[in-house]
């Protein structure tokens, strides 16, 4: 199972790099769709059908919103000439490259702390798995955890969602100061 997910992840990284370097905003938005929809396939391979369903809906909505934002604008990014401090900019980008390489090297040691991929032992959720079907009456264990054992989490999620919707409506309705 590790090989197909690695291939998909490589695909996602290529799509991400392209979308960050594209000149046209529309192609940037479409290629970030590569990343999102590859994630759906990864979820299916990882035996998480609920996540795949939710992610495909969310990705489509995000894509529609982003395309609506981009089509409303001029789309093309005009490159601007860098003014002054050329050596400073080179030094800064060199420093950023060094820091990123350092972080990546540090992360090479992180998988030693994790369990081997595919060899996970359920510690906390053992009780959930054993009791979910009887205690909650839900055949889907993820739903049982989400709406019963961790119901307050979902309440908080609904609060965040409501707040965000109110925020979006307020921001888009305000009359700007000239």
């Amino acid at each position: 199972m590790e090989t197909p997910i690695s291939i998909l992840l490589g695909f996602m990284i290529i799509g991400a790099i392209y979308s960050l370097s594209a000149r046209d905003l529309l192609s940037a938005v479409i290629s970030v769709g590569i990343v999102g929809y590859s994630l759906v396939i990864c979820f299916l391979l990882l035996k998480a059908p609920d996540l795949a369903i939710v992610q495909i809906v969310v990705e489509t909505i995000t894509l529609v919103i982003m395309i609506a934002v981009v089509l409303d604008s001029t789309r093309i990014i005009r490159p601007q000439k860098a003014k002054g401090f050329v050596y400073f900019r080179y030094a800064l980008s060199l420093a950023v490259i060094v820091i990123f390489a350092g972080v990546l090297l540090y992360m090479w040691s992180a998988p030693d702390l994790l369990q081997v991929f595919g060899d996970h032992t359920t510690r906390m959720s053992t009780a959930y798995i054993e009791n979910a079907a009887n205690a909650t009456g839900s055949a889907n264990l993820v739903t049982g955890v989400l709406f019963d054992f961790r119901g307050y989490d979902t309440l908080g999620e609904a609060t965040v969602l409501f707040t965000a919707v109110v925020g979006v409506v307020t921001i888009l309705r305000l009359k700007g100061k000239k």
Binding site: K47, V58, S125, L141, D153, E157, L161, A164
Partner: peptide, 23 residues
């Protein structure tokens, strides 16, 4: 079964990510 706890957390996080992105 696959561990359902991370899946439930990611399900919450996906919806919140949609809300923050829209904002």
């Amino acid at each position: 079964f696959v561990d359902p706890l991370p899946q439930a957390m990611v399900l919450t996080a996906i919806v919140i990510a949609l809300a923050t992105n829209a904002m």
